[in-house]
């Protein structure tokens, strides 16, 4: 899938980050050049970021070009990491490993659930041995909210 002008969109995201950071930083004490407050640095930086990002938006708008993005692995892998975070918090490490591996394998249309399951079993066993037994990390293997 191609997004009409990804360069423009990304520069736009950066500009939004810059503007929001600038507005938030205005709430911190600015101080003076001699005695800079906590707001001085963020205000200057987010100001520069916004200006640069806007100039990049302009240059992207003048030279449009389609950039290919692999949305399938992108979404699958981000979902896998997010899924890990949620499952880890609720159900512990072993279920979290199954979730992260299962969702990652959705990156490819024909991965197959058998290899995915084997991969999850092998990885979670390895992680249990390495982290819990060898390094002695204390984290719940299974949990129930």
């Amino acid at each position: 899938m191609h997004l009409a002008n990804l360069r423009f969109t990304v520069a736009g995201i950066l500009a939004v980050i810059g503007i929001s950071a600038f507005v938030i930083a205005l709430g911190y004490e600015f101080g003076s050049a001699r005695r800079m407050g906590p707001g001085y640095f963020p205000v200057v930086l987010s100001g520069i970021l916004t200006l640069l990002a806007v100039s990049e938006m302009i240059s992207a708008a003048m030279k449009p070009g389609a950039i290919a993005v692999d949305w399938r692995p992108f979404m699958a892998i981000l979902a896998a990491v997010a899924g890990f975070a949620v499952t880890m918090a609720l159900f512990g490490m072993i279920p979290a490993f199954f979730v992260v591996i299962g969702l990652s394998t959705l990156s490819e249309p024909r991965f197959g659930w058998v290899p995915a399951l084997i991969l999850a079993v092998v990885t979670s066993t390895g992680a249990w041995l390495l982290f819990s037994r060898f390094l002695g990390m204390t984290m719940p293997l299974f949990d129930w909210p």
Partner: peptide, 13 residues
């Protein structure tokens, strides 16, 4: 294909 899911899992943990 058998490596990257493990890499992602290792990054998470």
């Amino acid at each position: 294909k058998y490596i990257y899911p493990v890499v992602i899992a290792l990054i998470c943990i």
